[in-house]
């Protein structure tokens, strides 16, 4: 799955994934999920129209935001990792150093080291709920008490067997477009997972 510019979507892994997606569309979600964007998913969850949402810790602050969720919403939410012991790994920002002289480059490195230091990672967690990138950060009890959900999630994530990366970034851009325009067909059973895979393969092979 970690190949760049995938051209064959008819492998058993993909077919299995499309079958699961179809099942989720058909049985486990709202009617506006097809063609919906993040706003639809988030709002359905926040207004308790759906019971689960696949998302990361950055959403936790929204649970307490009175303009987005009803009061007391956060107390009803618990966290879990994906079935099969996996978590989705959303990478942090990456940096390039483009300074021309050594002095600036060194200063930039120092700044970056600070930005990725344990203190800053903890601060990020405390203030905006950013998940620490390092797995061996000890979380003080008071922060843990303040953000029980995140702490729970960190514990679960550290114990996960698999980490999924954002592998769609490796796809040809037009296959992503084909994916989203054909989801309704898959969701409404107008297309089998096999046909869906064939459609994506066709699109990928338009690239030379």
């Amino acid at each position: 799955m970690n190949t760049t510019n995938i051209k064959d979507f008819t492998t058993p892994e993909f077919i299995d994934a499309f079958t699961k997606i179809q099942k989720m569309f058909k049985e486990y979600t709202t009617t506006d999920a097809v063609g919906g964007k993040y706003e639809n998913g988030a709002n359905n969850f926040l207004s308790e129209k759906t019971a689960m949402i696949a998302n990361g810790p950055w959403m936790i602050s929204d649970f307490q935001d009175p303009t987005k969720a009803p009061a007391g919403f956060i107390d009803k939410v618990g966290a879990a990792i994906f079935p099969g012991q996996g978590v989705f790994d959303a990478p942090m920002l990456g940096f390039f150093i483009a300074s021309k002289d050594k002095e600036h480059a060194d200063a930039t490195v120092t700044l970056l080291k600070y930005l990725t230091s344990k203190e800053v990672q903890l601060r990020g967690l405390e203030m905006v709920g950013t998940m620490p990138a390092s797995t061996n950060i000890e979380i003080p009890q008071e922060v843990a008490n303040k953000h029980p959900l995140i702490t729970e999630l960190i514990k679960l994530a550290n114990g996960a067997k698999y980490k999924y990366n954002n592998y769609q970034g490796l796809w040809y851009p037009n296959t992503l477009d084909t994916l989203s325009t054909n989801y309704p067909a898959l969701a409404l059973n107008k297309m089998t997972p096999q046909e869906f895979a064939k459609k994506l393969t066709e699109a990928a092979n338009k690239n030379k």
């Binding site: 964007k37 993040y38 706003e39 988030a42 709002n43 950055w58 303009t67 987005k68």
Partner: peptide, 11 residues
Amino acid sequence: YFTSQFSFNYT
């Protein structure tokens, strides 16, 4: 800009 992850509110 209003349909992304950080700014999804309808209002």
